[in-house]
């Protein structure tokens, strides 16, 4: 399976939010303003790429040789949490500008379903290291794409007139439904 098809498949066809339903919790929270959406998106790309690569290395160089594949979940989630702490510390020390734009979203990514899913999916699909990196960037790119599109739509929805029960998250789900129809057009692409 070549790299380009992996990239397109994870970015558009099996979009992480619209067809796999992962990362919904931070997605609903952060997609109300465009600036926060962009910050969160870039942070997610960075964390997913780093965490997936490190998890892959841990799995194939520590867990498999020792025959401890069942420890996958525990090790991966602890590794992801540690990686997020490390990245936040690194950003704090090196670049205040970077911290201002994306550092504050980093703790929210620990419980993002998408990070853990991508780390485990790379193992399930038996990708090698390069394919892992490409898949991770594609998934995170799809997440950021969705965040940015939604932020622009929701900013317009804020001022619209609708029944009180639908304000906020319910109408966001209706928007997601329409976008899911739009993105299902990519189904035959790969």
């Amino acid at each position: 399976m070549n790299l380009f098809s992996i990239f397109i498949a994870s970015l558009l066809v099996n979009n992480v939010i619209l067809s796999k339903f992962l990362g919904m919790c931070p997605f609903l929270g952060v997609s109300t303003k465009l600036s926060s959406a962009v910050g969160m998106g870039v942070a997610v790309i960075f964390v997913i790429l780093g965490a997936s690569v490190v998890s892959w290395l841990l799995y194939y160089y520590a867990l498999v040789p020792l025959g401890l594949e069942y420890m996958e979940l525990i090790c991966f989630i602890l590794l992801i949490a540690s990686f997020v702490q490390f990245v936040e510390m690194f950003v704090k020390k090196t670049s205040p500008a970077l911290y201002k734009s994306l550092g504050i979203y980093l703790p929210l990514i620990t419980t993002n379903c998408a990070v853990l899913f991508v780390a485990m999916d790379n193992i399930t699909q038996k990708y090698n290291l390069i394919e892992t990196a490409v898949n991770s960037v594609a998934v995170a790119g799809g997440f950021m794409l969705m965040l940015v599109i939604f932020a622009t739509i929701r900013e317009r929805l804020e001022g619209s007139d609708m029944p009180k029960a639908w304000k906020g998250n319910p109408i966001a789900f209706v928007v997601a439904a329409i976008m899911a129809i739009a993105f299902s057009a990519f189904a035959g692409l790969v």
Binding site: G29, T32, K100, I104, Y105
Partner: peptide, 12 residues
């Protein structure tokens, strides 16, 4: 300059 930043997380 970054002490008063609050992440915009009202989803959960």
């Amino acid at each position: 300059g970054c002490e008063n930043l609050v992440p915009d997380c009202k989803g959960c």
